[in-house]
């Protein structure tokens, strides 16, 4: 077989493969649910109900989508420039650590200043974490996939050390957790009484900001040019190395914000289970969104709904909640294939 580019894809050509990809994902999930002894329709119904069935469920879904919007944006920004950042997990924890360092009483500032300081510091921390692998890539040609992946393990061990040592809560009954943030460092709730914090709004603002950068700024244009063809971009006079480093700072900064938002908005303190893999799930979010910043918001809501829904489905139907992870991984694989098929025709030799 060989692939033949389609000069002008029809409307159906652009819509059908992604629709089939989503369909195939649900078929895989249905088969697996049946293997586990569940009725697929009941299982999907329970997932839907768990994600959107009540005010509490909807707020839970929005809260769960928040870190995924940040990490999804981080990945989308990086992947668009073909900077393979698989280290959003470490960058997220870096943002969380700095938030805890600044926000547990070391400084006392009025709330708006405190929050701004923590957010900016978290962005810087995340950005710095990715700068290392990005420099290794641009200076020495070391593949950033492996270095960012390996660095996740290193940084999590570092966080584990901090939580058992310098950042350990003296009142924590021996648990490896940090002290709680002071009230000035906590992101308030959007509406009093509803469990949804301003981190969600911040995530939406971040998505719009990335969209503006992508479409309206020179940097956005340069990032895409480098991603499409680095050699041609260099030939056209774009400073490729600088663009890659700027991309890394932006991507790492966005992932760092996820850590700030989770600690300051949701948890109030840092533990080792702050992120159940938001950095990795961000890859799925970004790919499902076709790397589009506003699409990331939609994809993050979809992914969060499946996670939140599967959690409550698992309790009710006895089908393991790992079904959600399988659905997302297969959606990712089917979707990259579908996107290819919107642009290419498969021909037999």
């Amino acid at each position: 077989m060989r692939l033949e580019p389609i000069a002008a894809p029809s409307f159906g050509r652009r819509i059908l493969p992604p629709a089939l990809a989503i369909g195939a994902t649900f078929v895989v999930a249905a088969l697996l649910a049946m293997i586990a002894g569940g009725n697929p329709f009941a299982v999907f119904g329970l997932i839907l109900k768990g994600a959107f069935g009540s005010k509490f469920a909807i707020l839970e879904t929005l809260n769960s989508a928040t870190p995924l919007i940040f990490t999804g944006l981080a990945i989308a920004v990086a992947f668009r420039a073909k900077l393979w950042n698989i280290g959003a997990e470490a960058q997220l924890y870096a943002g969380a650590v700095i938030t805890v360092v600044l926000g547990t009483g070391a400084l006392s500032l009025p709330a708006p200043l405190m929050l701004a300081l923590c957010a900016i510091a978290a962005m810087l921390a995340g950005a710095l974490i990715l700068l290392g692998p990005a420099l290794l890539k641009t200076r020495l040609g070391v593949d950033e996939v492996v270095t960012t992946l390996l660095f996740n393990f290193i940084f999590l061990l570092f966080v584990s050390y901090l939580l058992e040592g310098p950042l350990k809560d003296p009142m924590g009954m021996g648990w490896p957790k940090s002290a709680r943030l002071i009230p000035e460092a906590r992101l308030p709730r959007i509406v009093e009484g509803l469990r949804l914090h301003w981190g969600f709004a911040l995530a939406l603002i971040a998505a719009i900001a990335v969209w503006v950068i992508n479409t309206l700024t020179t940097l956005g244009y340069e990032m895409r040019a480098v991603g499409q063809n680095a050699e041609a971009a260099a030939f056209a006079g774009i400073p490729v190395t600088k663009v890659i480093l700027k991309t890394a700072l932006l991507s790492g900064g966005l992932a760092g914000l996820a850590g700030f938002s989770e600690v300051s908005g949701l948890k109030g303190s840092l533990t080792l289970d702050l992120s159940p893999g938001f950095g990795y799930t961000g890859i799925v979010v970004a790919m499902l969104a076709l790397l589009h910043p506003l699409g990331v918001v939609v994809a993050a809501l979809f992914v969060a709904a499946i996670f939140v829904g599967a959690d409550s489905m698992s309790r009710a139907a006895g089908v393991p909640s790992y079904l959600a992870d399988i659905m997302l991984a297969s959606a990712l694989l089917f979707m990259v294939l579908a996107i290819l098929l919107t642009k290419f025709r498969v021909r037999r030799d």
Partner: peptide
């Protein structure tokens, strides 16, 4: 890159499931 990371997520979650 994408296929490999996707397969790692798929294989891991299938295993745990």
């Amino acid at each position: 890159h994408v296929v490999g990371v996707g397969l790692t997520l798929l294989a891991t979650s299938l295993t745990f499931y």
